[in-house]
Write a protein that binds this DNA or RNA. Structure first.
Lengths: 194, 194
DNA sequence: CACCTATTAATGGTTACTATTAACTGATAG
DNA sequence: CTATCAGTTAATAGTAACCATTAATAGGTG
């Protein structure tokens, strides 16, 4: 059997090739592996890999839906309970996109985002800006963990509101924040930051 | 002229349709606008819009490159100067993806991300975690503005470092932060948060 | 040698086009 | 009233990149 490689190995390598470059056509693959185009097609059939065009369409589709989802994310995390003007609860499942590749530690600004978004969400005003904040990262968060954020408006003074946010994970508090938000309702659109 | 619509208007609407749903074929368009498929093709030709397959390929390609770019973003913003263990400067051009749709105000956590990433970057340690932070948003930031962040390590105490970050935009300070970072070098991998 | 797997070939059909030439239709200008 | 022109449609030929089916062939094994 002086044949270059076995069917099995070829199929493995075809799968690899396609995952790296989904735009490759059967013809290109056939040249690459020095087999006929029919063999490539049989291989794809056996492996249940769709033709190039369909692969590309799939790619484009879930890519565009991802972009939309990203834009939609005005509120980071999922609001699960809200009492407008008082308090709210939201959750977020941490994903590998939020973490450092090497140690799977969720990057701190994603945690802040969850807190900040929730704080904004519970305030009953057209425009809300973050003024100042005190953050406390108490424990590291890893990929895959579910974060639960609870926020409560503590005090109000004019257009300034103090919101306290607590984020926990498996009943352990991993983050707390006190955020002063500035609301800009209707008439005076120029922010007052003093 | 009892004709439904003019050529010009049809072309406008074709352009719209395609931008909303790039996966639409000429045949579907021809049915939608009740003209022949040839007319649609002439229209595309005149407007320089490529055929559906090429549109989809383009979509898939720049979508996949975007995903890669997003993953690459371990450091948010562009590091332009760094003196490891002392200070650093980075910049970030704010984009519409970072802002609220309605008022073009850049969301606060993007600004924090810039500060936090820079603070991490200048610390000379394997693992760096954010401990506590005080943030001060001094002026709102709008889409398209270029932010310049400057960070400096102020004090060191054991594995804790105080980093101060100042972000400005058109020579106006828009944000300041004092961040206490915790470094975990080599031996003791369990974070010490006390 | 018969058999079997893997491979290749052959044929016909599909979608979604490009490119070109030609015919048609309705309105306008001379 | 007819020639002309824009806009539209039709017709034809060709392309890439496939699917689906049947058949032939090549190589190795029991």
């Amino acid at each position: 059997m002086a044949k270059s490689i076995t069917k099995e190995k070829r199929q493995e390598r075809i799968r690899e090739k396609i995952s790296i470059n989904p735009f490759i056509s059967d013809e290109q693959l056939s040249k690459l592996f020095k087999v006929s185009i029919q063999t490539i097609r049989l291989d794809r059939l056996e492996m249940g890999i769709p033709e190039m065009r369909k692969r590309v369409i799939q790619l484009a589709q879930n890519a565009s839906s991802k972009v939309k989802a990203l834009n939609k994310n005005e509120i980071i995390g999922d609001l699960i309970d809200i009492e407008l003007g008082r308090s709210g609860i939201s959750t977020m499942r941490t994903t590998k996109e939020m973490a450092f590749d090497k140690n799977k530690l969720v990057r701190s600004h994603y945690i802040f985002s969850l807190a900040d978004s929730l704080a904004m969400a519970i305030i009953d005003a057209d425009i809300v800006l973050t003024g100042t904040a005190r953050l406390r990262y108490k424990h590291p968060v890893y990929v895959g963990q579910l974060l639960i954020a609870k926020a409560r408006i503590a005090t109000k003074k004019g257009n300034k509101l103090l919101v306290s946010v607590h984020i926990s994970c498996d009943h352990v508090e991993v983050f707390t924040a006190k955020i002063i938000m500035v609301s800009l309702d209707g008439e005076h659109k120029t922010p007052d930051f003093n």
